[in-house]
Amino acid sequence: MTTTTTTRAAAGSGSGSGKSARGVAPSGKPFVTFEQANRRLKWALLAPALGFVGLMIAFPLAFTINLSLTDAFGAVNAGSSYVGLQNFADALTDTRRFWPAVGRTVAFTLGAVVLETVLGLALAMLMRKAFRGMEIVRTILMVPLLATPVAIGILWMLILDPTNGIANHLLGFVGVPPQEFLGSVSQSLPTLMLIDVWQWTPMMTVLLLAGLTTLPEEPEEAARVDGANAWQRFVHIILPMLRTTILTALVLRGVDALKTFDLIYATKGPGGGSDFEAETLNVYAYGLTFDYQEYGLASAVLVLFTLFIVAVVVVLRRRTERSAS
């Protein structure tokens, strides 16, 4: 109590006279006020966290941006020269690898996330009301989420192997000719999308189910009394009320899907396949770094990719905020 009073008094006088604000110690040396102490202490206590954030986020980002302006090749610690925005120009005019990779990144993300949202919402609606065995169903749904993408990639490679895999064996029973799946230029990306949908739909289900359980029941009850059928209640009552949750789920999953690397690399290898058929921006940047050792160009691609992700997040967040308001 005494301390609080003193602090307020010091703070109050601090705005009037600098000398009295600093005060004088019994020894005659000036000492800091509580407010100043508090201000410095705050920074001292924050310093480790700020330092960590600075080192882990700001430094790599600044380093990558710096590298993107050089012709670094072979090793980042080898000599390199600044080339201005040449790497960005090279990337943005590359119609053989960069722009197709952008297209695949967008197609993969949109395709996978839209399917996951639709299926996740459908499953969430089914699981909204309690039913017998619901716990078991929920547990089974969670299984794909527990495995690492690399393990899932290898698992699906074995299932979808055109020669030895079980998928073609089963398709043969219903008269479907053998498919190449991941071995085909045209089927690879859709197949990878479906594997992603298989793995991540449960997460969308969980997020949307959480949103559904928080919705008030009255509006739906009122609509039911007014004679609205199930579809009308879903479209006109539940969906509008769930919009914020859906947008939040889209942001979370969308950003994650944009960054997908391990599944594609595990199943298609370097370059996303022999015709680069599954090469997304992440896979392209990895190849530039570790297969080609072109660190300058790779950094430029990563900077562009980061800007792309930030733009997507900003757009989706604005929509979420507008929807929430």
Partner: peptide, 11 residues
């Protein structure tokens, strides 16, 4: 075999 362009040693 089909899917040969996706085949390395492991496949």
């Amino acid at each position: 075999p089909p899917g040969a362009t996706n085949m390395s040693l492991e496949q």
